[in-house]
Structures are given as structure tokens and as C-alpha cells.
Amino acid sequence: MLLSELTQKLGGTIVVDKPEAIIRSAYTSDLLSDVMGHCGDESALITIQNHLNTIAVCTLAGIEAIVICHNRPIPEDMKVAAEREGVAIVTTPLSQFAASVALGELEASVR
């Protein structure tokens, strides 16, 4: 799935773009230790963890895109790091559950 399609399904907004990203799976979690332990690559992370450290974890795990739920604001340092590291950020008004349902055709990401 391309980022544009993912964003459309979420009724979301692209904050940091990555047009070349191909997203095959997704994982939903707000605990970064859990994300690090279980989320695989070529994936989207559905979360409310709008923090700089989320970008670092995505870089380690090979996560292509972060979906920030409830339209939580993206801190400037998080945005800058995402641009630098090549991680896409999409915000959506949906909850984590509703966002997961909207992206239900993706595989469940596993590490």
C-alpha cells in the first residue's frame, strides 16, 4: 500500500511524506518497548506516541510510516527527525482501533 492510499483510508493528513514507501503490514501499540520487540519492517505503526523517540524506534525496526491517532499534534523535533530519517508521519482523527480497522487489509506486522 502506498502512503497516499493509506492516508486516504484514514481520512488523514500527511505531515511528513515518503512517496516511495511501500507498506505491507501494520502494528498498533503505544508502548515503544513493545513496538521495538514486535513490529517488523515495511510496516506502519498505529499509535498515539507523538514523541521524538518514536522516530528512533521506527529507524531501528524499519517502520516506513507512523499513523498518529486522535490528531495529536506532531512536535517540531519529531517532525525534523522524521524528515532526516526518512520516516513518514500521517495524522488521523481516528482512534487506534478505528485506524486499525480502516487499514485491515494490511498484514499484521511481526518481528
Binding site: S33, M36, G37, A56, T59, L60, E85
Partner: peptide, 11 residues
């Protein structure tokens, strides 16, 4: 702590 080592470029 996780067994993974720090990546200075990332963190």
C-alpha cells in the same frame, strides 16, 4: 534493558 546496543546515529 533490551539486549540491542545503542545506535549513536539514531539516538
Amino acid at each position: 534493558l533490551p539486549r540491542r546496543k545503542n545506535d549513536p546515529d539514531t539516538f
